[in-house]
Design a protein around this nucleic acid. Structure first.
Lengths: 209, 209
DNA sequence: CGTGAAATCCCCTTTTCAGGGGATGCGTTT
DNA sequence: AAACGCATCCCCTGAAAAGGGGATTTCACG
């Protein structure tokens, strides 16, 4: 590596920010440009000075880490993004990669894992951590949250808000049958037997506001 | 303070552990005895050497921080406990204090707040952070989630897991009618019309794992 | 130009839930 | 002793959801 890698860390929890900062100090050739608490502040920093890598929490107030990633990659294509999250949620990882993110690691990842993620990100590779890749696609798509379509996501959101099939049908200008089909598909995809479990699982996967 | 305060930190996320450790380093008269990832390890440390204060995450794998607190206070009455959590959930705070905890702070608390909490805890006082005490009981019981009984909490958890009233009844060794009553009370207390909204709200309030 | 996924719609039956009512013990608090 | 909250149990009815099946259009992709 010719020069120092310029890094920005984003997390709304000072404790985590501190922990990450400290963790990075132990690595070579790294210059911590800034630690930000939200997406707005981060974009402001990026506009002012060149940054090679942004390490951001997924769960941020106002603007999510995913969205932040998208904006970074749109405005500064040379800046790589690593997402971190409390939970090893494949849905997050998938979304992050879809939005141009390089790596996804959980907060309980080891220093080694962080190092790997940083290295991979800087080389332009994608990586989603050991815990995630270890699992078979089948097993975690059942367990952690399946791939659902746009329409299913809409219906799911309305279900979680407490609307009945009939009400959802009226809102979406479709028939009750259609909503019912989507609902059934959701149950099947999530591998659950009723609405309660569906909503709980969706909430856990961060699919619900 | 005559001697150093002996502290153990508990969090299953290395990053947070690191952050807290670092934060504590900046304070005087503190000796960090150990950093643990779970309740079992923590109890093992306590059995080996005297500890004045345990700072633990509420959300721990296997055994929760609340339960850990209870065990600590039962086995080592002189050891104080501070609970930390990602969310400023009054329900957590209440439970923690009920289990003998001294203070409750969120992970986005400032160093000053941590200092206050530590000081209060060592003096045997209880404290639940600024954000929590600022709010009136009425306002946050409406907004953050109603006060529900132990039994209702149990039923709610089982509902969210996807069990039907019949199955819950079998698990709790009560009749379906009873479970149904609890369910209805939950709907009323949360001010929602169906299970989907109930689970969503409960998830938002952090009442569901 | 097929193929396939997504979205749309319909039929059927059984189970579960929601909403209304009331009632009984059993502790704790007043 | 009375009042209260909690947990327990029961009745009823109608609505909603679950579970099963099948069918259509539309649109993107190879």
């Amino acid at each position: 590596m010719p020069t120092e890698t310029r890094i920005v860390i984003v997390d709304d929890h000072p404790v985590v920010l501190e922990g990450l900062t400290n963790m990075l100090h132990s690595l070579d050739s790294i210059k911590l440009v800034a630690g930000c608490a939200d997406a707005i502040a981060t974009m402001a920093v990026l506009r002012k000075e060149p940054v090679d890598l942004v390490i951001t929490d997924i769960n941020l107030p106002e603007i999510s880490g995913i969205e932040l990633c998208r904006r970074i990659r749109t405005a500064f294509p040379h800046t790589r993004v690593i997402g971190i999250s409390t939970f090893h949620d494949p849905a997050y990882a998938r979304e992050l990669l879809n939005c141009g993110g390089s790596c996804f690691v959980t907060k309980n990842a080891s220093v080694t894992e962080f190092e790997t993620a940083i290295r991979k990100a800087l080389q332009g590779e994608t990586w989603v951590g050991d815990l995630l890749t270890e699992q078979k696609p089948l097993s975690f798509s059942q367990q952690e949250g399946p791939v659902i379509t746009r329409r299913e996501r809409e219906v799911l959101a309305l279900i979680a808000t407490g609307f009945t099939n009939k009400e959802i049908a009226e809102k979406l200008f479709v028939s009750i049958s259609t909503v019912d089909s989507h609902r059934k598909n959701l149950l099947t995809k999530f591998g659950v037997l009723n609405t309660a479990a569906l909503v709980a699982r969706a909430a856990k996967s961060g699919l619900i506001s």
